[in-house]
């Protein structure tokens, strides 16, 4: 017992100050795209194997499909270390040069009144590779301490206010996902976490998957990335409960 107390003192208080202080992102992190590089890549008749980039509108990157590959197969797209990628509307994930930056919006006043101070999710992995799951899980560790914002992952859909989807939604998980969604009482929200859950990710158009949750259930928050950085996830969550604007 005394050893545990000594260890506790040694390990110290390690919850990060975010969002009061900015996050330290790794210098090679690939976040929000550089607008100029989109225009540059549009001239090279781009071909992204995941359909994330098109030459339309002077170069349009769909962050919902983008895997933020280290070597962009669609040409020369560069990324900043800006981790704020989440959006509340699917079309807000489309980035074009010159278009205004779109962040996730707060829930409606009615929803905020009910869910704003206590938001519980039931997570369903529907074909996820365990990376989105792992970096969702990490938010509950002492480093991120998600509980301080009133957000928690719960064991039963009956106790939940929302469904948290990871994975491209495999044929074999579709029924379980929909059953879980139905078991959550109204009002409820849905979060699609990661490229797979948004649009199929690396498995887009595989005959074994449904290309994400979007066509099956109404999605309220899209969190891009393969997998999203925990900072990207937390940014989206804090924006929908109006803790950051």
């Amino acid at each position: 017992m005394i050893r545990a107390i000594v260890s506790r003192i040694k390990q110290g208080h390690r919850t990060m100050p975010y969002p009061a202080a900015p996050l330290q992102m790794p210098e090679r992190f690939r976040g929000y795209p550089v607008a100029a590089s989109l225009a540059d890549s549009a001239d090279r008749s781009p071909e992204c194997p995941y359909g994330a980039f098109s030459a339309a509108e002077g170069g349009c990157l769909d962050m919902g499909k983008c895997l933020f590959c280290a070597e962009c197969p669609a040409g020369n797209i560069e990324f900043t270390t800006d981790h704020r990628l989440a959006a509340t509307k699917r079309e807000h994930l489309l980035v074009t040069p010159g278009a205004p930056r779109q962040f996730a919006q707060a829930l409606s006043n009615d929803l905020l009144r009910i869910l704003g101070r206590s938001l519980k999710f039931r997570e369903v992995s529907a074909g996820g590779c365990n990376a989105c799951e792992a970096d969702t899980n990490v938010l509950s560790t002492i480093g991120w301490d998600l509980g301080r914002f009133g957000i928690q992952f719960v064991a039963s859909p009956r106790h939940a206010d929302g469904l948290w989807v990871t994975g491209p939604v495999t044929n074999n998980m579709t029924k379980a996902l929909l059953t879980t969604y139905d078991a959550i009482p109204e009002p409820k929200i849905v979060v699609a976490c990661g490229a797979c859950a948004i649009n199929g990710g690396p498995y887009i158009d595989s005959p074994q998957v449904c290309n994400g949750a979007d066509g099956l259930i109404p999605v309220d928050l899209y969190i891009p990335g393969c997998p999203p950085h925990p900072g990207t996830i937390l940014d989206g969550l804090l924006r929908i409960i109006d803790k950051i604007r």
């Binding site: 210098e27 090679r28 895997l67 590959c69 280290a70 990376a131 970096d135 393969c226 997998p227």
Partner: peptide, 12 residues
């Protein structure tokens, strides 16, 4: 992530 920008080694 210091090696390649991804916590899971994507793109290394």
């Amino acid at each position: 992530a210091v090696l390649c920008g991804s916590r899971f080694g994507r793109g290394l």
